Amino acid sequence: MNTPQRPANAFRTAPQQPRPKAGHSSAQRLQKGGRWQKARLYIRERPLLERIYWFCIKAFLWLFFGSFGYVIVLKYVPVWVTPLVVARWVDTFGTDESSHVYKKWKSYDEINREAALAVVASEDQDFPTHWGFDFDEIQDAIKENQTRKRPRGASTISQQVAKNVFLWNGRSYIRKGLEVYFTALIELIWGKKRILEVYLNVAETGPMTFGVEAASERFYGHSAATLSRSEAARIAAVLPNPRQFSIKNPSNYVVRRTRQISRQMRYLGGQKYIRNL
């Protein structure tokens, strides 16, 4: 009985499988790479455009690392001057207003905790727990502002510090983007206690008056180390508009707002609420 002979080399006779075609994503990557190469070649063929390109790259790197280093320095050095202080000082030129700036830096430990608790209770009650942004408050503000004549803000204390210390006055997408950047940076590098310390020293508390120490000495006649709860609450009550509201001569609104803040300070549990910042 003859058995059928097997081919000498089965691999040679096996049908070849067709090669898989390049996927759509691979083709897209090649196309994008080609576009990038064309763009680089286009820039290289134009010396002026190439100089502008590298200038922009270097400027971006200098600004990025410079801002990073500046934030690190301000973690340890008092913030003596801010863009807001300069803007208010410039605004006095050609007017009858005094150009004298009331500002005195005090460390966190030299300021009564009632002042720290008052601004947290008034401005940002989730300050001890959030990472710089209160997204629930932002969503609520967006919904309310669709029907409100005067838009309600949702900035946290961290965002307000970022705006006051690093940015100029005004509203734009560029400024908002920088605000997000600096807010994240100080949350990462400074920490809560330092952010609150800076806020208590740079927040505008009256005409040409910045910080709770300057406000306490100017309007109460004593240091912020001895602030009472009601005095601290009144300072916090004028923070939304310290040029219109007065600590020394409070309006009915400021008096009512002071009482509300004092109640909130009590409901939060007093100074222990900010003990572990």
Rank of each mutant, 00 (worst) to 15 (best):
F93Y: 14
E110H: 10
Y273D: 12
K32H: 12
N9V: 09
K143G: 00
K104Y: 05
P18D: 13
L63S: 09
L117Y: 04
S25Y: 10
R171E: 12
P83D: 09
E114D: 12
Y102S: 09
L178G: 00
E204K: 12
V198Y: 04
R266T: 15
H24N: 11
T95N: 03
G269L: 14
F11N: 09
S98I: 10
P15G: 14
R275T: 08
L227D: 02
I43T: 11
Q31P: 00
A14L: 13
N145Q: 07
R113Q: 14
S155F: 05
H222Y: 09
N276V: 01
K104G: 02
L84W: 06
I186L: 07
R148L: 14
S223K: 09
A236V: 04
L239T: 05
D124F: 03
I57G: 03
V180M: 05
T129P: 00
G170P: 09
L30C: 06
L63E: 11
S223T: 14
N252I: 10
I52E: 12
R113T: 15
Y108V: 07
I72R: 08
V119Y: 01
E217A: 12
V86D: 07
L227W: 04
S25H: 09
V101A: 07
K176E: 01
E114Q: 04
A141K: 02
M1Y: 11
D136S: 10
D126S: 09
V81G: 05
C56Q: 06
A87D: 08
D124N: 06
